[in-house]
Simulated scan of single mutants.
Amino acid sequence: MEFDMARLGGVFTALVTPFRGGAVDIEAFEALVERQMEAGVTGLVPLGTTGEAPTLSTAEAEDLIARTVRLSAGRAFVLAGVGTNDTARTVEKARRAEQLGADGCLVITPYYNRPTQEGLFGHFSTVAAVTGLPLMLYSVPARAGVEIAPETAARLEDRCQNIVAIKEAGGSAARVSTLRRRCQRLAIHCGDDGLTLAFLSLGAVGVTSVLSNYVPEAVCEMVAAWQRGDAPAALAWHDYLLPLAEAMFIETSPAPVKEALAIQGLASPELRLPLAPLTRESRARLRLELDRFAASAAPAALTKKPLSNRIPLALNG
């Protein structure tokens, strides 16, 4: 059956993995997923970079996929992160994600190895061959040391019908235009919150967002405004959210967004090594931005309903 590309549109949240006392905090994770559902996100991405996937055991990872599938109950597209720097392990993870009920897989470029474009082509095409799930390629050179060339993306979409999208996180809006020229059908997702509106204006269909962990309703409002053709409203939301989006990356993600969630009382700021907690200076800078954001007026006149109970306005602690 042909895949419905419309399912890739909108806001996909790159879910954090909450920890408490060294273990996955299941209660907090389930509450965060439900909060995303209530906000109206169209996709959930467990086990991505934001979810600290490389630090999770196989049992933990599989449990989080299964829980996300169960909790979403078809209300959102579940895009499970399965990428590693070992093709054989990635194949195993993709097969298991399909067995667990995921709707698709997010496959990052192999990190550390720094493969050539031919190596990338072999890696992604091998993974695509072992699963019937739709795949989203993930190009993030700042983390992986290599990016997917537009020519390689075009080869992959030509060879593999279930490679349907690419998450572009190279920090360049110009790449959207290049990818659209080279590729006939790949849906493009923005992987940088501060560039979401720019990407959408150039033809991207959605965003895989870190920021939506913290303010899912607001990110959804911005994307929805663009989708309904209200560019002024989308720009107002962009201006409102941009300083907050930038604050989420004052240190390596997901440390800032976990700190922000902790301030909301939604999850612990705990990370797993080799990630470390925010420095005192960064914590103070983040808190300053969160306070500024909480005190600022949302573009409420542009929304379908008031946001007073949907965006955190009181930061305690």
Rank of each mutant, 00 (worst) to 15 (best):
L64F: 07
G43I: 03
R67T: 05
T55W: 08
P46K: 00
T58D: 15
A59F: 12
A61V: 05
A53F: 04
T50S: 12
T50N: 10
R70H: 14
G48M: 02
V41W: 00
A66N: 09
A59P: 14
T58Q: 14
R70D: 15
V69E: 02
I65W: 09
T55G: 02
T68V: 06
R70V: 08
T68K: 02
V45M: 09
V41H: 08
A61I: 06
I65Y: 02
L64C: 09
L44P: 00
R70T: 15
P46G: 04
D63Y: 09
T68C: 12
S57L: 13
L56A: 04
T49Y: 12
L56T: 08
E62W: 10
A61Q: 11
R67E: 11
G51D: 05
A53C: 14
V45G: 01
T68W: 03
G48I: 13
V41Q: 02
T55N: 05
T55I: 07
E60W: 09
A66P: 14
G43A: 09
L44Y: 00
A61N: 07
A61C: 13
R67C: 08
A66I: 01
D63C: 15
R67G: 13
T58A: 15
P46R: 05
P54T: 00
L44W: 03
P54S: 04
V45H: 05
E62K: 04
V41G: 00
V45D: 06
